[in-house]
Structure formats: structure tokens, C-alpha cells
């Protein structure tokens, strides 16, 4: 199962929105083969009737009240903007 091809790496990179160079494709294909061959060891364990652990704690459905809290410090928020204009986030045009 760990026999992963360069085509598969190209497909996975496309799903992950990454451009890879030829040498990266080659390198990552080899790395994935090695890592997955190692990870295969978990198949030696019998996990029939074992539940999956989804989180580290047993907590479920942590809710908060659906209340609006205004955040007044506009300057502080805009500090995170890579680009800003007249108190607003400036972003590239994303609709053609």
C-alpha cells in the first residue's frame, strides 16, 4: 500500500494547493514511501471493537452563549492586516 507514485504526489500537492518542482516531487515521493512503510506497523495491531480517540480529553459539545460582544479597538485589529486602506483590510481582487 505504501507504493506511492510520483503522479499521486502531484495529485496530493494539487489538493493541498502546493506547487512542487521536479526535484521536490522526486524527494517527497521517496520520503512518503519511507514514512508510510514505517507507519504500516500499526496494521499489526488488532483494533476490532476499539473506539477511535478523536480528542485528548473526554469533553463533548462545548458551547458558549450566542451573544454579540463588540470589539472596539479597530487599530489593534488592523495591525494584523498585510495591507490596509482607510481603516479597512485591503485584499487582492479575488473575483474575475
Amino acid at each position: 500500500m505504501a507504493d506511492i507514485s510520483q503522479d499521486e504526489i502531484v495529485h496530493i500537492a494539487k489538493l493541498a494547493m502546493l506547487n512542487l518542482t521536479e526535484s521536490e516531487i522526486e524527494g517527497y515521493t521517496k520520503d512518503m514511501k519511507d514514512i508510510l512503510a514505517y507507519a504500516e506497523m500499526i496494521n499489526r495491531l488488532d483494533t476490532d471493537n476499539i473506539d477511535e480517540t478523536i480528542g485528548a480529553t473526554e469533553q463533548k459539545n462545548v458551547f458558549r452563549k450566542d451573544e454579540i460582544v463588540n470589539f472596539e479597538n479597530r487599530e489593534l485589529l488592523l495591525q494584523n492586516a498585510p495591507s490596509q486602506d482607510e481603516g479597512m483590510f485591503r485584499i487582492p481582487k479575488v473575483i474575475q
Binding site: 500500500m1 506511492i4 499521486e8 504526489i9 496530493i12 500537492a13 489538493l15 493541498a16 502546493l18 517527497y28 512518503m32 514514512i35 508510510l36 507507519a39 500499526i42 496494521n43 495491531l45 483494533t47 476499539i50 473506539d51 477511535e52 480517540t53 478523536i54
Partner: peptide, 25 residues
């Protein structure tokens, strides 16, 4: 790349789900 691979359709059960069960063990 590794994470996207183990979550992708066809490999999810074999790697990700199996790993979560071993985590329980």
C-alpha cells in the same frame, strides 16, 4: 503532503482512522 495523503479518500480508513484506534490502545 503526508497529512493530505492520509486524509484523502481511499487512505482515510487505512491510516487516519486506524491511527485513532491505536491511540485508544
Amino acid at each position: 503532503i503526508l497529512g493530505t495523503y492520509v486524509l484523502s479518500s481511499g487512505y482515510y480508513d487505512a491510516y487516519y482512522k486506524k491511527a485513532q484506534k491505536v491511540r485508544t490502545l
